[in-house]
Design a binder for these strands. Structure first.
Lengths: 203, 203, 203, 203
DNA sequence: CATGAATGAGCCTTCATTCAT
DNA sequence: AATGAATGAAGGCTCATTCAT
């Protein structure tokens, strides 16, 4: 991890902001320089990064490391004794995490298809990990015994519906469903709880 | 003339394919011409479309009209007498619709943020409409009486979890959750049914 | 001289009009086709002309032949007995001739520099000829005997001041001098007369 | 770097030269770059000018400012006591000014019709101003009292004939009249003097 | 470090011209 | 004779990147 000079940080800030707003290809080095307070078009960025791709990597990595710092899985082991309360906390936590990484999500949606390792692993971190942890937690907390398949399917459904509410808003450009977070969470908790107590029979 | 398909159609085909693969900005007119069997760089496209934007519009519109043709909502009014069976058919239908519009979804994820009227309305059509219809249907089919808020929240959750499974795969570049469609649908039907029979209390 | 079909004529009309308005380079074959009522971009023009250059030539030639038909030099040999009256008629005639060839003048101003024979000879016809005839006439009509040099210089001055009033208006885009034609002609006649009666001593 | 002149200046030089030779539309950015010693087609010009139009503006403005620097109207107030001598100096001065702005004249003839504010004001400066000053001067120097109309008409005639001798040569591609500058000036002075001493009666 | 300047590559678009129908 | 379609060439402009100062 290279030094973290003030200029370097300003460049990453500018890049992440503009990449999220306009996409990677839609953002010129010149624009990033301007946003970072460097002379536009002078290529000052290249004293800090090898290439535009390198800058993208630095940006994504910084967002991911922030995510790591933020990620506080204590809720997963906190036993409130009340499953409903725990689920509510969990839902809020997941949504806020997605919100705080909205910029990263936007970048990934625009560029993940280009098949770059870096971006794929970012998706893993931001989505799959949460999902896996959720599945594990479900298996351990459910009153009834869940098979792996059941836990996986329930977790996929649960993560998916939360993720969706943010992806449609963040990536597609506006909330697609007129449902408040409060209602969404209440319904999510209610539905997830029922699935945990009365899981489906899977072939 | 490598194909007998009218040139215009071949151009739209090529454009939709490449836009989905590489994004709008990432696709050059030259590349589209090559893919369509025209001389690359000769601008032959401009005998059929006014501009690159115009071509994007044509592509999105064609996908949308295909969607209209495809959209067969008969399942929404078919009374099989068995709610579980109806939900299963509905889930399969929604997933297959999303699958057949994967390319459009990919394009929208890349470009919808640019704030173009056209793309926004495409999102409406592909996502919001289905959601609205689902909410309406739920209110009419549920055994217990649902408030608007309840129906909306349940529909948002239900649509969201299906949409998510396709968005993560299609947009982000690979399935994020190791769950088969079969299990996903079974769990979705089970969970949705329970929500309809025992809806959450919403403040 | 090729046949004069209606279509061919319409094309030449359109070309001359547009060349004068937008210049040769600024006028596309497509625009000429549209103006002439042909399908734009279909290249229909090439059934009548070998190339865009050829069309320019045809246009200039047609204007020149019109000029020939128009050119009525009778005023040059009409002896009204009154030099002042003859000069007045001559001035009016020259100005009206320039006016009726405004389009040609505009084309020449834009394109004559390209060194094309055709255009150079057009300039000859429209300007030098008049000048030469004027010089000849002066030598024959002056009360005092004029040397060639004197006649040439006086004719150059006289033609020049008339030409100027049209060139500034027609070519440069608006009248540069706030002087009415009436005043201009009166002064021109007055001045020319004095020069003829009392020519300068030339070294 | 073939020359030590600042690049920007070399670009303007190249542009003015080529615009005069081939017209604005007829001159490609690539050609200007080549002429200025930049890599053709690399767009190096755009580090110095926003657009081709902007470059035209810079060129015209530079020529105009040169004109301002050059324009030395002292001859207009110098009282040599001898009107004939003053007129001779004036004629020489105007012709040399037009000669030194031949390139600008050529550009204006090609492009002034496009209605650009900048070019119109350039025409004003190079033509109308001289004319106005000439008219004013005439009113003040004439032995007899001149009405405004008389002064205007005489000035228009006088400026016109000088302008013409340069416009035909410079714009149309060659001298149209076989008259030496010496003879032209002598005749012009002679004629103008007679008009000032014996102005026409204007209705 | 930062900047001014330059450059190779590429992009979207226009256009004169050709040709089969 | 006219059209729909195609094409080679070029044009204006952007951009990631490099380098001397």
């Amino acid at each position: 991890m290279p030094e973290s000079t003030p200029t370097r940080d300003r460049i990453v800030d500018a890049a992440v902001k503009l990449f999220a707003e306009r996409g990677f290809r839609g953002t010129s080095i010149t624009a990033i320089e301007a946003e970072a307070g460097l002379t536009p078009g002078a290529g000052g960025i290249y004293h800090h990064f090898k290439s535009k791709q390198d800058l993208l990597r630095a940006g994504v990595e910084r967002q991911l490391s922030r995510l790591d710092a933020l990620r506080d899985m204590r809720w997963l082991i906190t036993d409130l004794g009340d499953l409903r309360a725990e689920l509510t906390i969990g839902a809020r936590y997941i949504l806020s995490e997605l919100d705080s990484e909205a910029e990263l999500l936007r970048i990934l949606a625009s560029e993940a298809r280009t098949g770059q390792e870096l971006l794929i692993s970012a998706v893993e971190k931001i989505v799959s990990n949460s999902y896996t942890e959720l599945a594990t937690w479900m298996r351990s907390r459910s009153d009834v015994t869940l098979t792996d398949a059941q836990a996986n399917a329930i977790a996929a459904l649960a993560m998916g519906s939360l993720l969706s509410s943010r992806v449609t808003a963040t990536v597609l450009g506006g909330p697609a469903f007129p449902v408040s977070d409060e209602h969404l969470i209440a319904t999510w908790v209610h539905g997830t709880l029922q699935l945990l107590q009365n899981p489906p029979t899977l072939p």
